[in-house]
Design a protein around this nucleic acid. Structure first.
Lengths: 352, 352
DNA sequence: TTCGGGACTTGGAACGATCTAAAAATCCAG
DNA sequence: CTGGATTTTTAGATCGTTCCAAGTCCCGAA
């Protein structure tokens, strides 16, 4: 007893060790592990005791290999450091964990090259599916080629560039960007704003295009002019937004309000405005997009569009799990509505 | 040619398929894949062509099984939605990716129960190591029992509760909480503050204890009194902090400044102060801890302690990879200094 | 005493890679 | 040519699990 009760310190405990330890076959131990009703109560008890005694831990990789299954999902995000995506990831992980899956994380830092590398590396671990929020400029053909057709893909937040024939063979979960930006713009117009800029984001990104389209839609519907220099591009982060702030005022007529690409940009813009002695929420109206946690805590608090990223994460995970259950179902494209949250950063024009 | 150029649509391409496809053995294909110099140039070319043609993707799980290695690291965080940890995770993932590892993500939402479940589930995937920022109240014995002694553990940010004999057999990467809080307190004292509270966090958490100790240290060194009701506990998030704000003013003498457990708490407290008509940075001084991105953007911008979470993530990953290289080295305990960042939220007492 | 059949158990072949030791092919000097 | 050295390739076992088909045991019916 003393001999085998001290398993060799440098090897993991396996089924065979347990089997040897209580004198049954590996097959029986396997049945016990999986709670099969086939095995006798006494045997089960004996095996379970031995499992505990030796401190066995299941090797899911081996099981997955044999069963040709997978118990992981790859989650690839363009910017994990952005609180919006951090919340999203939390939601995904919670839901996946509930479904018995494990999250393989990859963040691409908005680089298409890294995205390819990360996808490639994660795919070698044979995930059951992929949730991807693509980097800006990420190409449909390329992504499809590295993911292959066998692994289901759920696209979040952005479309991929480039057409795929005949129809994108993946599911999509998108925010209603256009409607959201339209709501924000209409809200500013209702406050009496007339000279409204669209600030931030890159024109190449699909979500930016959609948000810009919503802005244009609202402006046109209200019969308002749009000056070309009211469209300022910048990277979707605070730093670049603050740096680009000045560009709004190079030419006249200068805008008195801005619909921003997202909250990060809006917060950066407000910072830039302060540095110019312009007080957002009084001298200049600003709206954001996403309603990240700090949106309610900035000064002034930010008027923005709420998209409840954690719930989106949960939803994304559930959509993918559903797809795994029914691989043959029609690809879905879900557009979730966003909600306007009015706070202090939107105001009537100062000179009105 | 036409027959085998269309691999069966429903099975993954394996080494054997490639071997069959170009009439060599599996062993040879394996050598090619791993860039062995043993294989003839022509054969290599032939195999590589076939790999491309069939769209082979490497199955790292199978390889890991055979080689008894692992190419993943588990990253378990108590609160991924907190931007501090999101940044940290980004740093970890970047560094791990560089080392050829993949990140298995798990977030515990500050629940010890979930932490156990998550750790258990991730360990079944046989990670080479674990990076853990434990949930509040997480117990050393329990964690050690589920992780086992074979898998190296790197502890970040918090110590585990309960003693382990003779010495904790894991590496630790900690912030210099005590010194940080002391610096913040000394800064307030230098501004002329005398009635300084310590606000937020749970007394059970090690980081909170350390920060509180730093505060006490500075107060004592300056010969200042500490009233018991100047120690307010709350959950380390904005919402609870805002709700607990009132507790500071139930008894006199009321404090005129507060050293907060972290930035989230400080931002919440500032929100609560506003709601009471008290303007932080003018009527009441506030400091935070972490220097999360929005600390510089709040109104007033937050005086806090910078810990550069992304760099910490990188460092954590590198420490763990180092440990994998030298499993027998002495356990390390690294305490990284934090830097005081003075911004607008700290001010002299209003009545001075 | 034999037989059918439930209730359990089990040996051995998978899964997709790697490793080892040895075979096969090639080369080259004598 | 031949024999040994060198280069290249390979069969088969192996990693830790699951699956399959077949085995054992025991009990009551024929």
């Amino acid at each position: 007893m003393a001999t085998d009760s001290t398993p060799h310190a440098n090897r993991k405990v396996t089924l065979a060790d347990i089997a040897a330890g209580c004198d049954v076959s590996r097959a029986t131990v396997s049945l016990v592990l999986r709670g099969s009703p086939l095995v006798n109560k006494l045997t089960r008890a004996r095996v379970e005791e031995e499992l505990r005694r030796q401190g066995y831990v299941y090797n899911r990789a081996a099981a997955n290999l044999r069963r040709r299954t997978s118990s992981s999902i790859a989650l690839v995000l363009n910017d994990l450091a952005n609180p919006f995506f951090a919340e999203f990831a939390t939601g995904v992980d919670e839901a996946l964990g509930g479904g018995g899956y494990v999250t393989l994380l990859g963040s691409t830092g908005e680089s298409v090259t890294r995205e390819q590398a990360v996808l490639g590396s994660l795919l070698e671990h044979d995930p059951a599916g992929v949730i991807l929020s693509p980097a800006e400029g990420s190409d449909a053909g390329q992504v499809l080629r590295t993911i292959g057709v066998r692994t289901p893909l759920l696209l979040f937040n952005r479309e991929l560039a480039g057409k795929v024939s005949p129809d994108a063979p993946w599911d999509r979960l998108m925010l209603d960007n256009q409607r959201g930006a339209r709501l924000a713009t209409e809200h500013l117009i209702a406050l009496g704003q007339k000279r409204i800029a669209f600030f931030g984001g890159h024109a190449a990104s699909s979500s930016c295009q959609q948000r810009h389209a919503g802005y244009v839609e609202a402006m046109k519907a209200a019969g308002l002019r749009i000056e070309p220099h009211w469209r300022i591009e910048c990277a979707p982060n605070r730093v670049d937004a603050a740096a680009q702030c000045g560009a709004l005022f190079f030419e006249s007529p200068a805008p008195t309000a801005a619909v921003c690409y997202n909250d990060a940009v809006a917060l950066g813009l407000m910072l830039g405005l302060y540095q110019r002695g312009i007080q957002p929420g009084r001298d200049f109206a600003v709206t954001g997009f996403d309603d990240i946690a700090e949106a309610g805590l900035s000064a002034p608090p930010l008027t923005t569009l709420a998209s409840t990223p954690r719930a989106r994460g949960k939803q994304a995970a559930e959509l993918l799990l559903q797809r795994l259950r029914e691989p043959q179902a029609e690809p879905q494209r879900i557009v979730v509505p966003v909600q306007l949250v009015v706070r202090g950063s939107s105001c009537p024009p100062a000179t009105a």
